Simulated assay, not measured.
Amino acid sequence: MANPLPAPATLLVMGPDYIYGTLPVPPPPLQNPVSTADIMTAVELASQAMRFRGEFAIHDFLDSPNYVNDAAAGACVKYRDAVVALSNSLAAAPAWFVQWNNDTFNTLVQDVHDLTANMMIPIARNHNLRTVMDDNGPFQQVPFPNAVWPWGKSVAGPNGVQVVLPGLCNTQAVDQLTSAEASAYFMGYYPGIQIPHVVQQRKIAILRAIGRDV
């Protein structure tokens, strides 16, 4: 008798912090062994989640019933990977799927991520400039030009030392940046530009990069 498979609800994280919008969750029960249809259902769920996250992540569309937040989109991608892993452990995934996953889906996910970030740069900067008049914020996160969302990220500083970037939700957060954090943020927002020696100059440049007119 085949070993029972975990229920999809245990593979896909649910909870109040996970906004799935109109996605069909939880997914239907998995077949045993995992079938090609199961794999494609998981792939389609992850693809839809990434697409809805990109289309409805813009500030004006957060109230859309289709809105999927980052936590839910990430959970869908993890669900896809878990289903594929189960398939690999029970019966190898079809060669065509492995090739498609490597060549197409992963590229699509990255493209959606990059497009979303590039769209959000002017929107978030404009929000921080025109909507939030108070230095107390809250400011929206402005991605780096390379599509990295910096808040909470560990990035390489000027000497290659990893620096965890704090969120810049208000002017005080920028003022409180350490020299290393200010350098890392400057490198992110102004790639290829020499880092100013004076920390305050870096902070002024960071404020301008996130839309604060100083």
Rank of each mutant, 00 (worst) to 15 (best):
G167A: 06
S89A: 14
A156E: 14
E181W: 09
L108F: 05
L168Q: 14
F186N: 12
L90N: 12
N118T: 02
V132L: 05
R130T: 11
I123C: 02
L177C: 11
P166T: 04
P143Y: 13
T107W: 00
D135E: 12
A95R: 09
L168D: 14
V155T: 08
P191I: 03
F186Q: 09
W100M: 01
V148M: 15
G152W: 11
W96V: 01
H113K: 03
P138N: 13
F144L: 14
G167T: 03
N102S: 05
T171K: 11
H113N: 06
E181V: 03
Q141A: 10
F186D: 13
P122N: 09
G157Q: 10
G160T: 06
Q110K: 01
L108I: 00
Q172C: 04
T131C: 05
A147D: 15
H127W: 06
Q140R: 13
D134P: 03
N106R: 02
V98Q: 15
A173I: 06
T178Q: 14
E181P: 05
D103A: 01
A124D: 12
I123W: 08
G137T: 09
N106W: 02
Q162F: 03
Q141P: 05
A147T: 15
I121W: 07
T171E: 15
A117D: 08
L108Y: 07
D134V: 04
P122C: 03
G160K: 06
Y190R: 08
Q172T: 09
G160W: 11
D103G: 00
A147W: 15
S154P: 04
D111F: 00
S89E: 15
N126G: 05
A156D: 14
T171V: 09
A117C: 02
V161A: 14
P122L: 04
P138Q: 12
G157H: 10
P143C: 12
Q176N: 15
E181C: 05
F105M: 00
L129Y: 13
N159K: 06
P143F: 11
A92K: 07
L168F: 11
Y189D: 13
P94M: 02
D103H: 00
L177T: 12
N170V: 02
P145A: 13
G160C: 04
A182T: 07
S154C: 02
T171Q: 15
P145E: 15
N126F: 06
Q176R: 12
N102E: 11
Q141V: 10
D175E: 13
Q140L: 12
M133K: 12
V164D: 15
N101Y: 08
H113Y: 05
M187C: 05
A93Y: 07
P158Y: 08
M120V: 00
Q110R: 00
D134K: 04
Q172E: 14
Y190F: 12
D103F: 00
F139R: 10
T178L: 09
N88V: 01
A91I: 04
Y185W: 11
D103V: 00
A156P: 04
A117K: 02
W96G: 01
S179R: 12
I121D: 12
V142P: 10
T104M: 00
F186V: 03
P191N: 10
L165T: 08
N128Y: 03
D175G: 04
V109C: 01
W100A: 02
P191V: 04
P150V: 06
P158K: 06
V109T: 01
